[in-house]
């Protein structure tokens, strides 16, 4: 398992540098309006691309995934916090999963 340590070095090293270099290097305020706008939108775009459509398949069942996301989306839209939304999403998916199994029997 000497491979493990080499892999770990590449994994952890590249992840760290990708985060730290731009953070440490950018000491000036960006004035360019296009770049500023791009930087403002990028995190939301990343989160959305990570969520769609993967979240629907996260539970292994599209129906329970959709139920969890719908319930979570409802509360997120109402402005509830991160933990609350995460928990109700899981709970709703769990209940949906139970219901599906009951019906299937």
């Amino acid at each position: 398992m000497k491979d493990f340590w080499i892999y770990l070095l590449i994994l952890a090293g590249s992840t760290y540098l990708v985060r730290a270099i731009p953070f440490a290097a950018m000491r000036k305020k960006i004035e360019n309006r296009f770049v500023k706008s791009f930087l403002y939108y990028i995190p939301y775009a990343v989160l959305s691309a990570m969520t769609l459509p993967a979240a629907f398949y996260a539970t292994g069942n599209v129906i329970s995934g959709a139920v969890g996301l719908a319930v979570g989306g409802f509360f997120a839209y109402r402005g509830k916090g991160l933990t609350f939304v995460a928990i109700v999403s899981c709970a709703a998916a769990f209940l949906a999963e139970c219901a599906i199994r009951l019906v299937a029997q």
Binding site: T51, G72, A76, K80, L82, A86, I87, S89, C90
Partner: peptide
């Protein structure tokens, strides 16, 4: 993903 929803 629930957490992502709550952020966005």
């Amino acid at each position: 993903y629930g957490m992502f929803l709550a952020i966005v």
